[in-house]
Amino acid sequence: MNEIITTKKMKELDECIERNKMKKGPLMPTLQDAQRIFGCVPKEVQEHIGKKLNESYAKIKGVVSFYTMFSTKPKGKHIVGVCTGTACYVKGAQKLVDKVCEVLKIPYGETTKDGLFTIAPTRCVGNCGEAPVVMIDEDQYGRVTIDQIEEILNKYK
């Protein structure tokens, strides 16, 4: 866990907390900041936020576990999202999901051993006209076919 939680990152989080405290309902923005800073919200960070915001760990954990955007384990360097929204689904997104899992040799939702890729469940990225859509980090690929998957992933290796 040491490389995830550094003093520098903690300091950054504390600054965010101070800023968020001025708003009403500071918890969600703070957790979003933590997720961005650490790449996840591990237990230590949750406890720290709890103390600073005067909330119980149970409450914080409840919120973290509710929303899919928050994770307690670090995600891979690249997030692979095969959109499985309705438009993409009817255009065969399931086959793309299977292919991505096959190529990366991990189940849906998991991270590769080398920490390079995480397959993140993704529902509609708002580009349904180009279905099926694959997203890698902020890059969108539209009208993807099965044969293109390997080529696309290779770009991020």
Binding site: K23, P26, Y67, M69
Partner: peptide, 27 residues
Amino acid sequence: IDIRLGAGAFVCGEETALISSIEGERG
């Protein structure tokens, strides 16, 4: 106006769940 970001929960589109979420609760 302030912006609040969701965190990936469909139910937060429902108005009372959305309110819970802004308040910093489970949606």
